Lab assay of single mutants.
Amino acid sequence: NITNLCPFDEVFNATRFASVYAWNRKRISNCVADYSVLYNLAPFFTFKCYGVSPTKLNDLCFTNVYADSFVIRGDEVRQIAPGQTGNIADYNYKLPDDFTGCVIAWNSNKLDSKVSGNYNYLYRLFRKSNLKPFERDISTEIYQAGNKPCNGVAGFNCYFPLRSYSFRPTYGVGHQPYRVVVLSFELLHAPATVCGPKKST
């Protein structure tokens, strides 16, 4: 009989979030998941669920729940959905087409922007091929755009693959930082360890 609440607040209220290319994953298990708490945590810009209804979450049980978190800019949030393409979905964080879970995003301009520009958040701009779903690539190998090998040196047709967002508070919403948490629900042929409040007794 599990009584402890799932530590969603640790994920959502973390002081620092990860850069999207090096997104963070927390496995959540053996706890009571009260998803209604999430609705009250922040004024969400996005709370979209796929393959599951957000209002039914509190009635369900899962084997595992994974919470992935990272920062992107406002106009990239739409890429965090099944079947999307674009720089983020292709080279940084890719959801599977049959994704079961929820994408939660909110504006973090007050936390993640600086007047002089916050350069701490990076994204991958160049990659030889698209990522597979939930693949994480943290390599910093020089990207070869031409025929000549780069031998690890940046220059003509040889690019450092990561680029930094420079978040400034005066930017338009599309270029402001957004914190994203992706909850993916895993149903294996194994005992369910993460249940809503109704199912945990």
Rank of each mutant, 00 (worst) to 15 (best):
Y178M: 09
V52F: 13
P161E: 04
N40F: 09
E141Q: 12
P149S: 07
L188Y: 12
P43T: 10
K199M: 14
L5G: 10
C102I: 06
S129P: 11
P191C: 09
L95H: 01
N147C: 06
A18S: 12
K110M: 08
N147H: 07
F160E: 14
K198R: 15
F8Y: 09
Q144F: 03
D59M: 10
C61P: 10
Y91P: 00
P177R: 02
K198S: 14
K132F: 09
P7L: 09
S164H: 10
Y123S: 13
A154N: 10
L183T: 02
L131M: 08
G155M: 06
G86T: 01
A190H: 13
Y50A: 02
F17R: 03
N87I: 15
G86V: 01
H189I: 09
L38S: 05
P161K: 04
S69V: 04
Y171C: 01
A14L: 06
V20A: 07
P177L: 00
N109K: 07
N64R: 12
I104N: 01
L5R: 13
K114V: 09
L60D: 08
S184R: 08
G51V: 05
P54C: 07
A145H: 02
D137V: 04
Y35Q: 09
L38Y: 06
I80M: 05
A33M: 14
A145E: 04
L188H: 13
R168G: 00
N151W: 10
C31R: 06
P191N: 14
I138K: 10
V115I: 14
R179E: 00
E10H: 08
K128N: 11
D97F: 10
I142G: 01
S36A: 11
A22I: 06
N58G: 12
A154D: 09
G83Q: 09
I72V: 15
T85I: 08
S200C: 10
Y66G: 03
K199R: 14
R16M: 13
C195T: 08
C102T: 03
I88W: 01
F12R: 05
P7H: 12
S139A: 10
V52C: 10
R27A: 11
Y91R: 09
C102G: 03
F167E: 00
W106G: 05
A22H: 10
N24P: 04
V65A: 12
N24E: 15
A154T: 15
F62R: 07
D90A: 10
Y21N: 05
G196H: 12
F70P: 01
S108A: 10
L38A: 07
S166I: 03
A33D: 05
R168W: 01
N147E: 07
T3S: 13
S69W: 06
I28H: 06
K26V: 15
F44H: 15
F156K: 06
Y171V: 02
G101P: 00
A67Q: 06
T46W: 11
V77E: 02
R25Y: 03
E186R: 10
P169F: 05
N30R: 09
Y171Q: 02
F8V: 06
V180D: 00
H175F: 12
Y165G: 00
K56W: 07
S108L: 01
V32E: 09
N118W: 04
G86E: 01
F70Q: 00
F45Y: 15
P82S: 03
G74C: 02
F70L: 03
F134P: 02
V173E: 12
K132I: 08
C150H: 01
N118K: 04
N107H: 01
V52H: 09
N64Q: 13
Q79E: 09
P43M: 09
S108P: 00
V20E: 00
C49I: 03
R27P: 09
Y159A: 01
P82A: 03
D34F: 06
Q84N: 07
V115P: 14
N147Y: 07
L5Y: 14
E186W: 11
N147V: 07
L125S: 12
D90Y: 08
F8Q: 04
F167D: 00
N157Y: 02
H189W: 09
R179C: 00
R168A: 02
G86A: 03
L38N: 05
Y143L: 05
Q84G: 12
V182K: 01
G74N: 02
N40A: 12
V52K: 07
R25Q: 04
Y93A: 01
K26W: 07
D9K: 12
Y121R: 02
Q84S: 12
P7C: 10
F17W: 15
N30H: 12
E10L: 08
F70W: 01
N40H: 13
R127K: 07
N64P: 13
Y171A: 01
R127V: 01
Q144R: 09
V173R: 13
R136L: 07
Y165C: 00
E135S: 07
T46S: 14
V77S: 04
V65P: 03
F62A: 11
K128T: 12
L41C: 10
K26H: 09
L125F: 13
T201V: 14
D68T: 04
C102M: 05
N87F: 15
P43L: 08
V153E: 13
N13V: 06
C61Q: 08
P197M: 15
I80C: 02
P169S: 04
F160D: 11
G196F: 11
P54K: 15
G86S: 04
F185Q: 07
E10A: 11
L41I: 13
A154M: 10
F126H: 06
D75A: 15
N120P: 04
G74D: 00
A89N: 04
H175Q: 02
P197A: 15
F12T: 06
I2K: 14
V173N: 10
S69H: 05
L5F: 13
N130K: 15
R179K: 03
W106M: 09
I142R: 02
N151M: 12
C31Y: 06
S69N: 06
V115M: 12
A33N: 07
K110N: 11
P177H: 01
I104Q: 01
T85A: 11
N151P: 07
S184C: 12
P7I: 09
E10Q: 12
N40E: 11
Q84F: 06
G86N: 03
L57Y: 08
S36F: 07
V103S: 01
P96E: 03
Y143V: 04
N40W: 09
L125H: 06
N58E: 14
T193H: 12
S116M: 10
S36Q: 11
Y121H: 07
C61G: 07
L122T: 10
T15N: 11
R168C: 00
N24M: 09
F99E: 00
R16F: 12
N109Y: 04
N92T: 01
F156G: 05
V173Q: 14
K199N: 13
C6K: 05
Y91V: 05
F70K: 02
K114S: 11
D59H: 13
I142T: 07
V65H: 05
W23C: 02
G172S: 01
L111M: 13
P149D: 13
L111W: 11
I138A: 11
Y91D: 02
L188E: 14
V11Y: 09
C195L: 07
V182E: 00
P197H: 15
K94E: 00
V194K: 12
G152H: 09
D34W: 06
N40V: 08
R163L: 15
D137E: 04
T63C: 08
C6L: 05
V11H: 05
L5V: 13
K148H: 13
G86I: 01
W106F: 08
W106V: 06
T100N: 11
A22V: 06
N1I: 09
I88N: 01
L111Q: 14
A190C: 09
I138E: 13
K148L: 14
K114C: 08
A42M: 13
F185Y: 11
N147Q: 07
L38P: 05
V182T: 05
Q144M: 08
N4H: 13
Y178A: 08
N130H: 14
C158T: 01
P149M: 09
K110F: 07
V37C: 10
P197C: 15
N87V: 15
Q176C: 00
F126Y: 03
H189T: 14
R127S: 06
A190W: 10
Y123T: 11
K114Q: 11
V11L: 11
R27K: 15
Y159F: 02
I28W: 15
A67W: 09
C158V: 01
Y66I: 14
G51Y: 05
Y123M: 15
F8R: 04
D98H: 11
R25M: 02
V11G: 05
V194Y: 11
C102S: 02
P177S: 05
C150L: 00
S69G: 03
A81E: 09
A105Y: 13
K148N: 13
K94G: 03
V20Q: 00
P177M: 01
T3Q: 12
V37L: 14
R124S: 00
